[in-house]
Design a protein around this nucleic acid. Structure first.
Lengths: 221, 221
DNA sequence: GAAATGCCGTTGCTTAAACAACGAAAGGAA
DNA sequence: TTCCTTTCGTTGTTTAAGCAACGGCATTTC
């Protein structure tokens, strides 16, 4: 297995005993994939969300010309395909592949939404969790869009830092990315970004060392 | 009023009579705003989704330095704040303002998810609709991110066109944007984009006239 | 300790996108 | 019709970002 279901975002707040019963009641099915195997192909409809139990899955996209790019990877406990499963008739724009030997738990969204909605308290919790998963995804995407709307690297950095500072409640914070990852997140070139960072430091806008940054008051005025 | 609720994404598939009863049962509340008035301030928690009944609302974002940008505007029938309302404890990154005199219907998400889940068939439909609204938002955001990951204007255009062609099931399609809007969507300068478009046409990659585009086979190889 | 690896910051060069400005065409209103 | 506004496409210039390459530093591995 490798993951404790009730610590995942989807099953949070649901007790062990209820969980087992619920999985049965929902007709959850588990499946194993070999490394490199396709879990969900592009252009398909799906009525189920997937939860990675062990291993790792990769979400990628390919355009008409065959060029494909990795959008994200799904760690154990995380959910994928929820966006498509929740919109009836929508086909996938992306492809999900096993990055290692991977096991996945599939849950039919229709059953989550309708079955046994009479008594089960935890079922209501599951629905709420699913909604939270979807909303969190939206929020995450919105953030990324906000931070990449500026055309300049400095603008993007400041937008991102501004958000970090707000979240931290302080002008000092640390970021969960190394330089390359931050550059990828902001959609810019790493070396150029490094350059901009030092320029900003010289100008007194920010101070940083490795992943710890502080916005300077002078920059706020 | 100005809008027929049962034709909106959130209330789709729910009959008139049930709708009235349901709104009462959910404790829906309606409120009018004058042009320019703030409907939802930044940094707040909200437990309710809003549905614009008449008028128009604007969603905007401001950074630490006070610069603010318009993210989208909400037409009658459309839903806003669902992302924040569906994540307990999350505070808004954005601000919602009335662009004109506007009336809004607020629905508590907690009540949508819990109240009277015993009998009401249409209540289940409402929950499913809410989930669809959230998922649609995600999909919409994902698309935009996909189409803006390329660093070149040409790459962004081709990514977008690729998507249009897939959706249309044909190499010929028309786009719902004028040039300025398309440029804004792709995050590039309009004139530079026009330039690139004509270059692509000269090279035989695409053909276009106004908003009608066709990808040329030659470009597919 | 030596070698290898990964991450960070810097430099110089190249290129592509932004920007400003303009004229032509299309559409609407008087 | 004429006038006015909006939208498009084009040009030339400026600027900023991409890109490639390198050296320093820290960490890990043998």
């Amino acid at each position: 297995m490798g993951i404790d279901l009730k610590s995942t975002q989807l099953f949070r707040g649901i007790g062990d005993s209820d969980l087992k019963e619920m999985l049965h009641c929902l007709g959850a099915r588990e499946r194993a994939y070999r490394k490199g195997e396709t879990i969900l192909a592009e252009g398909q409809e799906t009525d189920a969300v997937g939860v990675v139990l062990s291993g790792r899955a990769i979400i990628e996209h390919s355009d008409l010309w065959g060029a494909n790019s990795v959008l994200s990877n799904v760690a154990p406990g995380a959910v994928f395909a929820e966006t498509y499963a929740c919109i009836p008739g929508e086909t996938t724009l992306i492809q999900v592949t096993a990055a290692e030997d991977t096991t996945v738990l599939f849950l039919n969204v229709g059953k989550i939404l309708t079955t046994c909605s009479n008594a089960c308290v935890f079922h209501a919790r599951l629905i709420r969790n699913l909604l939270t998963v979807c909303a969190s995804k939206s929020l995450q995407l919105s953030r990324r869009i906000m931070h990449t709307t500026s055309k300049s690297i400095r603008g993007r950095l400041l937008s991102y830092f501004s958000d970090c500072a707000k979240k931290e409640g302080s002008y000092s914070f640390s970021v969960p990315f190394n330089r390359q990852q931050l550059a990828d997140y902001l959609g810019v070139d790493r070396s150029t970004m490094c350059n901009e960072l030092s320029k900003m430091q010289r100008e007194g806008l920010i101070r940083y060392e490795r992943n710890s940054f502080t916005l300077r008051e002078s920059g706020m005025l």
